[in-house]
Amino acid sequence: MDIMWGLLATHLRFHIVGAFTVALGVAALYKFGVAEPRKKAYAYFYRNYDFMKDFEEMRAGIFQSAK
């Protein structure tokens, strides 16, 4: 019985630290692998975006009833 004394607490401490480390790693990978490139892509798109030109193209095709 002495072997099992504190076994749960020891395992929980190890697994909680491991889970926290993995969660931080996944969050950092998502931030730098997905979120930052997406923000840069949106910034680049809207830096050069001409909404009137896009509207004129849509008006000629999709929005034929808009004058």
Rank of each mutant, 00 (worst) to 15 (best):
I62D: 08
L8R: 07
R47Y: 12
T10Q: 07
A41H: 07
R38Q: 13
Y49E: 14
I16E: 04
W5F: 14
A27N: 00
P37E: 09
R13F: 06
A66K: 12
N48F: 10
R13V: 06
H11Q: 08
F20E: 01
F45V: 04
F55A: 11
F20A: 10
E57F: 15
G33C: 02
F63E: 10
R59V: 06
F63Y: 15
I16T: 10
A60D: 04
Y30I: 09
T21L: 05
E57P: 03
E57T: 15
Y46M: 01
A28K: 00
G33N: 06
A27V: 05
T10E: 13
L12V: 07
K39Y: 03
W5D: 09
V26D: 00
A43V: 01
M4T: 12
F55C: 08
R38V: 07
A41M: 13
M52S: 08
D2F: 06
Y49P: 12
G18W: 05
Y49L: 11
D50S: 13
E57W: 04
L7D: 14
H11D: 06
M52V: 11
G18M: 09
F63R: 13
S65C: 12
V17P: 03
Y30D: 07
M58F: 10
R38T: 08
W5L: 03
G33Y: 02
F63P: 09
F32T: 15
E57Q: 15
F45A: 09
F55T: 04
A23W: 02
M52I: 07
